[in-house]
Amino acid sequence: MMNDERYDIADQVTAYAREKRLSPQTVARWQAWTVPDQAALWELVQVLQLGENHLRDFLDWCEEIMLRDGGSIAALLARTELRRPLTAQLGRNDKLKAVKEGLRKIRYPRLSQLEDELRAAVKALDLGGRVQVSFPPSLEGEDITIEIKARNAKELSEQLTRLHQRLEDGAVLRLFTLLDQV
């Protein structure tokens, strides 16, 4: 039974690799996993139709999480936050985005938490939809970018007033402080 399963997975992965033109190194890494781990990723790959780059991210993150946290890749990929998007009423791209974001949160727990806190702090500023606050990629750096869109001088003045109030009450300062805290 175990042997049959191994051959099934190997055949399916080989056929998929041919179809997607995956590199032999990437396929070899996947096939070096235990059969249950290979099968767990295979299930996900079929739904998400992963190409070389996304597949390599999944391999990297799964292996890195296992080396850090222990357990098995099959158990990792069975987690609700990764399973739920697979069956949700979403297109392939949205499913991929949701699963990858879920896996990234497990791979980068403190970075993800900090990003969540910053998002919440920006929301609390209540600056309206035409003021965008953004942070450097992966929070590497100090600059916070504030982008204001205005159709006229009155609108710009209102937005600047609101932003000034947030500066005065310390809410903007909180963003800078948060950016530096884990």
Partner: peptide, 30 residues
């Protein structure tokens, strides 16, 4: 990763920085 498959070094919360090198993300590094 190829030479030391069991290394745990790569499992830290490292990200790609502007100079093309992966490091622990800045807040944690600081």
């Amino acid at each position: 990763r190829r030479r030391f498959p069991q290394t745990r070094l790569l499992s830290g919360e490292q990200i790609l920085c502007d100079d093309g090198k992966w490091r622990t993300f800045q807040a944690l590094r600081v």
